[in-house]
């Protein structure tokens, strides 16, 4: 069966726009705000949101990227390496962190990211923004900002494409 596009470029842009507005609503004017993108695509989405915040408020919001591939609790191996790039380290103590990911599924990725963040410091708040919430949570995790809810079957896969690496902006369901 053919892949089905569930979010085209325009809708994806609009979803990011709405997430940005909502982040602003919850973080007065973007003060003490840090965006943390979950690698790979979450990082690009975080930059997009930061660009939008800059267009609106003229402020530059720091963006960090976090690589949680070693942090997943369902994978074997030691938590030997921090998921944050050394260069990107910002003092996150008492900051409002928005974790940005492309898809929220079981919640395990998010949890890993939370672990990684808390290891570095103690932020004031952490909230979660995802482009797609596809359901099937295995952990008590809920996104604060959702671009689009897309109910899926367990065996389906959601693929988010971003212009920066995939050439297009769209989200499709792969069967």
């Amino acid at each position: 069966m053919a892949n089905k596009i569930v979010l085209d470029q325009a809708s994806m842009q609009r979803a990011l726009t709405r997430i940005t507005y909502e982040i602003l609503e919850h973080n007065k004017g973007g003060q003490n705000l840090i965006l943390v993108g979950v690698k790979t695509r979450g990082e690009y989405l975080a930059h997009r949101i930061a660009d939008r915040l800059e267009q609106l408020e003229g402020v530059q919001i720091p963006v960090m990227a976090i690589d949680i591939s070693d942090y997943r609790d369902d994978r074997l191996g030691q938590h030997t390496k921090l998921g944050l790039d050394e260069d990107d380290r910002v003092n996150i103590i008492d900051q409002n962190i928005v974790l940005v990911d492309d898809v929220l599924f079981t919640g395990r990725t998010t949890r890993a990211a939370l672990d990684a963040l808390i290891q570095i410091g103690r932020p004031k708040t952490i909230s979660l923004a995802v482009l797609i919430d596809r359901g099937h949570r295995e952990l008590p995790i809920r996104a604060d900002f959702v671009g689009k809810n897309i109910p899926t079957a367990q065996n389906e896969k959601i693929q988010v494409h971003v212009k920066e690496i995939d050439g297009t902006d769209e989200v499709e369901i792969v069967h």
């Binding site: 842009q13 726009t17 940005t20 939008r52 267009q55 609106l56």
Partner: peptide
């Protein structure tokens, strides 16, 4: 209906 309206956040 001929003036361009810009959405500031996306610049569109």
């Amino acid at each position: 209906m001929n003036h361009p309206i810009q959405e500031i956040i996306s610049q569109e």
